[in-house]
Nucleic acid binder design. Sequence first.
DNA 1: CATCAAGATGTAATCGATTACAAAGATCGA
DNA 2: TCGATCTTTGTAATCGATTACATCTTGATG
Lengths: 356, 356
Amino acid sequence: MSRKRWRAVKEIRIADVARLAGVSTATVSRVLSDPDKVRQKTHDLVMEAVRRSGYTPNSTAQKLRTRRTMNVLVVAPRLTNPVFAETLRGVDDELTQSGYGIIIGNLDNRREREARYVDLALSRQVDGVLLLTGYIPENGTRSMRESGLPIVAMCAAIDDDMIPNVVVQDREASRRAVEYLARLGHRKFGYISGTPGSIIESERFGGFLEGIAAAGLSQDEIVRWEGPFVFSTGVAAAESFLQMTERPTGIFAACDESAIGFIKRVRSERVRVPQDVSVIGFDGIELSDYTEPTLTTFRQPLHELGRAGADTLMKLIRKEMKPGDWNVRLPLELLERDTTGPVLHKDYKSLRRATI
Amino acid sequence: MSRKRWRAVKEIRIADVARLAGVSTATVSRVLSDPDKVRQKTHDLVMEAVRRSGYTPNSTAQKLRTRRTMNVLVVAPRLTNPVFAETLRGVDDELTQSGYGIIIGNLDNRREREARYVDLALSRQVDGVLLLTGYIPENGTRSMRESGLPIVAMCAAIDDDMIPNVVVQDREASRRAVEYLARLGHRKFGYISGTPGSIIESERFGGFLEGIAAAGLSQDEIVRWEGPFVFSTGVAAAESFLQMTERPTGIFAACDESAIGFIKRVRSERVRVPQDVSVIGFDGIELSDYTEPTLTTFRQPLHELGRAGADTLMKLIRKEMKPGDWNVRLPLELLERDTTGPVLHKDYKSLRRATI
DNA sequence: CATCAAGATGTAATCGATTACAAAGATCGA
DNA sequence: TCGATCTTTGTAATCGATTACATCTTGATG
């Protein structure tokens, strides 16, 4: 096992390559960035010197001079959220194609982390910002916007002329969820919330209420359980549900995880899904197709959303559009699976029991 | 709706602040980076000017001058992998504390993407590299190492003196998984693989074989199903399993997802877990506690792993250690849950049936 | 062959900070 | 008050590229 002493290798600068090729630094630079501007012969000479020396341009110097960092900041609510991960894949696909890199801004659901990323943006370490969270506060967003930095909001809509929104139709889908359950005969509803205070949660709850109203029901009829976008929120909701004497028959969960947590808990107490209670989720995460029974839910077009957001940001950075020019609202797809079914009326239910 | 014409705001440079405060740029710089070096009065004067002008230092210029980018590259196999996401959280915690940022290198399981990130590293956009993947090829790793860039390997061990390894004890845990099943009386084993060719997979399969040997069994006794680290690999394995006449009774899956896929599929054909077949997973993802039945598995200390890896990289960057000085191998924790149980011998099984 | 335009290359300013070194100012004891 | 010493501040070089402008080649054309 040879143990050479560690030591930094001397850096090769553009001047070294120029000397090696017998040309000026300007020529080397031109060969690398705009080859048509130099004679073929010189081009080959320089490339050979580049190859021999193993030169790689110092991107920091390039950035300083060109004022383009080729990086964008992606602010995320929580890294372990699968919805976020899938969106990020779409973002990554698009940005990589354009030669941009991703700097991760992970809030980890703690608002105090925002300041750090606002600073990052303001110190011009990035050419643009993608907000995958509804958490950046009004004044943080404002100072970023005022600095002229391109921003795209991919959380639920931010109401700001200067910030294009690329979002999914949360509100519409939530309303449709209720309508769907109502069409199956459900009249008593439960709502399992997402992280209280987040824009996404309020959009989804808003849509849910619209659906309730559209079905001609009063808000007094509904039950609402609060908690963040995680499994255990559904489990807690189930505990409460199990205590009730007049149970709702139609449950809308603001995310698939809580829907799954709910179902698992109630089934362990011999409550049948969908015979005793119908559950509809939101997101369409991969797992929702692997539960027992498979989950009825709305699939978010996350990959597409990520690409669309990144594409919009690219357009903004390249000044191919102005902020007000563009808003995208992608539709969700209802996946009718096995956790929803028609309401079984009491008599029908006993009838059915008798025949089994 | 007012629509002002969009226009970049003029940048404020350190010279502007200096002029505003009536001092030199050197003084402003000192106030910001080493306040003890200036008189209190000057300090206040400068800070007031900073505040009034809304100055934020241009970090690109700082980087060029100080030769520190305060960014590290994290190379990941696939963003949507929950194991990766959880590790990244640990990395993020540690790096944020040290003021470092994360640039994401997403391979998305495609090797051809490596080149891009090797370039990124070589062009000194980052101060160090964390490899969360076993995919960076030998020559990519070598050129990064030769450039003197600090690297830490957090995939399974890379055999290179110059690269510290911070890993979990994959091999040992896999061996223990077999031992555990053997102690429950199992003699016929099945192995559901992870992504063929990845270092992680070969470590886990290696450990599995060690366990088989330790149990005094021959390799002929085992069945091996191949596929990537995803649900569907387990489903496919289950299809094959269901066709068999002499089925294995002890299944080791190289990741929780495939274990869950397997269980779901066999249960839908009325195979009972753990009575008919015991299944043990690997990773300990959150979901493994929400399946029916709950999954016996090895929990990786992912958050800790992420922190340890990032900490090691920090030490390397600050030259507080040399690459050969340090290797970490974290143990895994066996979570004994409900998908494993003793082998039921035929006679015992019928006896048991009779009593029910 | 002279002239001129187009093309290729070189020179040096520039991006915006940090910091070595020089210069000026404060402090103190004799 | 004077110089010695220590603090504070300013001047200008520097990091490593890009690029406007100047200069030199080349080649075409009358």
